[in-house]
Amino acid sequence: MIGLDVGRLAAVARKEAREYRRTPFIIGAMAVLPLIFMINPVITIFAIGATVKSATVAKAVGATFLVLLVVPAVIPASIAAYSVVGERDQGTLEPLLTTPVRRGEILIGKALVAAVPAVGIAYILFALAVILAHFFAGNPTVAATLTEGSHILAQALFAPLLAVWSIGVGTAISARSSDVRVAQQLGTLASLPPLAVTALVSFQIVPLGVWTAVGFGLGLLVIDIAMWRGVVATFDRERLITGSRAAKTTGVGPGGSVGPGEVRRIRFTGGTDVG
């Protein structure tokens, strides 16, 4: 990821954003899915009576919290799963890879455009849940529980970390897949496992506090970093074009110019391109 060119990264991100804007399916999914995910939390919050005990409120809020975190995990997964196989399907991948753009610039440019709206929507939904609880919930402790420092911190940390996971895993599947539909289905499924981590907190198997939130956040961060290292490794130009990875065999690249009959061979220790 070293040596990223901001101009190239911005060019990739701008292109992705323009394509999403003109794809009704993506806009529709981004608009409708969060609204569907909001239905259950709203019903849960409104169903809590004024006399319900604080432990029951905490449980209900925990369930709401988990549902709200499904959004940043699921929404970008299908977008990321389309990102590489979709380019291959359209025939745009090869022209893209013949430019000086580095794989880090392609991956980050694409990931940014998938992550920013998903995380933004997750934060907006959380804010909406807090506002609704504050003004309309029958039990006044609901809003107070939702706005506890640990909940806000967990939401702030978990939403982007879950989005980064699901984008990474979606991109990896996309890079290895030859069919858009299969990639999107697998990508959505593969985005769910980290939610198990947050479910431990949501269902109070592990009590949520500031340090728990930080600890789980760090755990997700480590998982994300390890997974993205794998994603970068799968993004090999030769594999993307031909379906097979470049062999690590005797190879090319004389130290200087070569004339016919004068061939200098050096060890070729990698794929097509390190960039």
């Binding site: 013949t98 074009i241 190879g251 690249g253």
Partner: peptide, 30 residues
């Protein structure tokens, strides 16, 4: 594709636009 740095050759050598083709020079050639 090989000369365009998309595919690594199995053996042999090439110089493209004055730059020796290798794993490290892909972006420079492109």
């Amino acid at each position: 594709r090989t000369l365009g740095t998309l595919i690594a050759p199995t053996s042999g050598s090439a110089v493209v636009a004055g730059i020796p083709l290798s794993a490290a020079t892909g972006a420079e050639i492109r």
